[in-house]
Structures are given as C-alpha cells and as structure tokens.
Write a protein that binds this DNA or RNA. Structure first.
Lengths: 226, 226
DNA sequence: TCGTTTCTGGATTGTCAAATCCAAAATGGG
DNA sequence: CCCATTTTGGATTTGACAATCCAGAAACGA
C-alpha cells in the first residue's frame, strides 16, 4: 500500500545537455543577424508569457520586435519553429531567474530562501503569468510532440539543479539512506509547479506558499529522522 | 445581466456552489435541446482535452457532435461561451472521476488509495492529456479573465473536497492543532497538479507518484507527531 | 387542433493571420 | 574593391475558421 522510497543508489549525476543549438541545418548568422534573431525571440517570449501561444500572432511579434515578415521568416521557418526557440529561451530564463540559489539547495535554510524568492517573484508579478515553461506545457504538450519533448528537457534541467542540492544533503548523511534524492527533487519541482498554477488562477500567493512549505517541511522531517 | 443571489453560508465549512446553471438569460431548453447541448459540450470537452482550446475549431466540434452551425450557435453565443461550458463540464467530471474516494480522505490509507487511483488513471491514459482543468488553466488563465475565474471555482470545489477529509482528521485530533487543514489540502492539490503536469510532459507516471507520495508522507509524519 | 416557440440545415460572409515572393540593401571574406 | 552571402522591406496570396443568415421542420402549450 505504501510504495516507499526506492533504494536506487544515487550513482552518478546525469547531465542534461543545455538545449540551444539547432540540431538541423546551420544557416550561419552574422552579428547583426544574431541580434535580430534574439530580438524576435525575446519579443515573442514576452508576448507569449502574457498572452499565450494562441493569443499572440506573428504580426504581434513583428510589431513588438520591430521587424518585417521577411526578417521573421528568414530566421524561423514558421510559427512553430519560433515557438520552439521560445521554449529554449524560457528554459534558460527560468534557471537564470532562480540563481544563485537554485544550484545550492543543500540545506533547509537554502530551501526556505528559495521558497521565499519564488513567492516574492509571484507577488511582484501580481500572480500573473505563472511558470514560463509550465504554461507552455499546458498549451503545447498535446498539440506539438516536439514542443513537449523540448519542455520536458527544460524541466529536466531544472529538476537536475534541485537534485544537486538534495543529493549533497543525502551524501552528507543528512537524509535517510533509503530516500531517493532524485525522487525528492522531483516532488519539490512538482510542488512548485502545482503551487504556481493555483496561484496563477487564484491570483493569490497562498497556494505556492502552502505547497512549498509543506514539501520543505517534509524534507526537514526526513532530515530530523536521519 | 446581473446574476444575483449570494447565499452567505458562513458555516465552518464553506460551500462552493456547483457551477452549472448559466447565470445570465434563460433560454429555456426542450428535452431534445438539452440533449443536443450536452452532446456539443461533451464533444468539445473531449476534443479540447486531447488537442487544447486553440487546437480545436468550431468545425471540429460540429463534426464530432454531429450538429450544424446553426445548432451550435443556437446554444452558445460564441466559441468563448462554449469554452466556458466546457470548463463547467470538466470541473464536474474531475470531481466525479475521483469518487467515491475524494470526499473521504480522512486517513492515510484513504490518501494512499486516492494516490493509487490517480496514478492508475494516468497509466490508463498513457500519461496523455494531463488534468482536464489544469491544462485549461494554463491555456486560458491570461487570455480570458472570466475563464480564469471559472477555473478557480472548479479548483475551489476540488480543494474543498480534499479539505473535508483532512479537517476530519484534524477534528479527531489526529493532526497537530497548529496545522491548518485547509492549507494542507491546498498543498495536496498543488502536489497533484504539479505531478500531473510533469507526468504529462514526460509521459511518465513517476512525477505524480513522487509528488503525491511525498506530500502524503508529510501528512503521515504530521499525524505521527500529533 | 392551432399558434408559438424551439430546434435544425446548410450555404455564405467576413476577418484575420500565416506564409510567400520579388527584389533591394547591407555585410563580410578574400 | 568585388562578389557571394546574408539581411531587410513590404505588398500579396492563401487558407482557415468564427460567425451570420434565411428558411423550414419539429416540439410544446393551451
């Protein structure tokens, strides 16, 4: 009934490659081209964050980035390709936004500070927008298989960062030997995501606070039991 | 255009009204009309579940439900109105799908059974689709304020059902007096949602398992400490 | 039964956004 | 400095899809 932690030795730390390079053809870009491309992706990311993929037209992106049709289609085959670029962009942005805490979640205090940061961000955004990748997930997971895979990769990188700290605690013997650090990290990420969705729809920071507090309390309890 | 009738149920356990009745004008429906309307909503809900709102055209819905344009627009003012009906429909469906467990989560065993059910459902769906309301949240929260409110109401009903069981445990003295049952219920719902999103993008039941297991373990620890 | 309301068929319209195209300007390597 | 390559402008095409309209059939209440 109680499928408790699996004793799956936290062997080597797996490495997820930072998705950024377009695997296919290489239309080498000039410095100027690079800038234009980046401007387009940034504008698209911003608009999509506040209006969703379906709610932002190519024309909106063109206007916001100050580029013409031919420019946009010079850098991206179609809207889908642009969306893929936005996924990669936001996957990086999410990680960066949590620095320098994210990679060092190896104590209860660090986890609490991380929680506080997440809550502060939501309050600053007035609980609007939700998670930059989480919302993309909801919108694209079933509509675009490639996008789903990219988003999964983005989450994997995030999860990995969290697992870094939890594993450190585990290695130090601060957590019971039979708890799986990766699994615990996954649960923390899930609590974060779920809390974020609920605060987004409720426009209220309480859910993410409650979710992260509960999950971190759980980690603290495990630590006390070690 | 003024939906009135606020019933102040100020009892200890707040009651969220089951959103179903169209608040505005009442174009009374015949038995046949009721059936047609229901057929449209069901078809739309199914398509939206597997393809998203943006990925589902009115024509798709017409074909799936076997109705004509005039039928569809006879029952719904526009696509947005249909989507609102789908939100109400799915809010009910989600609750029903978790019966008879959902309202009686007043023990660790009950919580574990609920977790097992959630996992079983995901496996059966091959981890596709995610949460019927959660995905709508991601897609509509920023695009449609009214939809956001409706989705929040759907989540509120869900949360309330969970809180019923947790509060029962609390009232029985099985949980420490200083824990807030509603807050704990919120955390459980968040874990469920977050786990579901990750399960959906990864096409892997592990996240929802890890998230719910961790959160339920937390409840068990609180119970042991009471 | 009759008259009113509700329900249905299906062609049509209008809008908007994605994507294409033809050149023209800038850029950079050799 | 020259030429291939990259970058840009912007009008245009194409297509999809939401929404409307005009009847006409069925159901309902009295």
């Amino acid at each position: 009934m109680a499928p408790k932690g699996k004793t799956k030795a936290a062997a080597s730390r797996k490495k997820t490659p930072a998705v950024e390079a377009p695997a296919s053809a290489a239309p080498r870009l000039t410095r100027k081209g690079e800038e234009t491309r980046e401007r387009i992706v940034s504008a698209a990311a911003g608009l999509i964050f506040e209006r969703g993929v379906a709610g932002t037209s190519i024309e909106d992106v063109k206007d916001a980035a100050g580029v013409s049709s031919s420019q946009l289609y010079h850098y991206f085959a179609d809207k889908q390709a642009l969306v893929h670029a936005v996924i990669a962009h936001q996957s990086n942005a999410v990680i960066i936004a949590q620095e320098p805490l994210l990679g060092k979640l190896d104590s209860i205090d660090a986890l609490r500070a991380w929680r506080d940061q997440a809550v502060a961000i939501e309050i600053q955004l007035q609980c609007k927008g939700g998670c930059p990748i989480g919302t993309l997930a909801g919108e694209l997971a079933e509509a675009d298989p490639d996008a789903r895979a990219d988003i999964a990769a983005g989450f994997a990188r995030w999860e990995e960062q969290i697992a870094l700290g939890i594993s450190a605690m585990h290695d130090r013997g601060e957590l019971p030997a039979d708890v799986d650090p990766d699994r615990l990290a996954l649960a923390l990420l899930a609590a974060h995501q779920g809390g974020l969705i609920l605060t987004q729809v409720r426009r209220d920071p309480a859910p993410i606070e409650a979710a992260l507090d509960a999950m971190i309390d759980h980690v603290a309890e495990l630590r006390a039991a070690a």
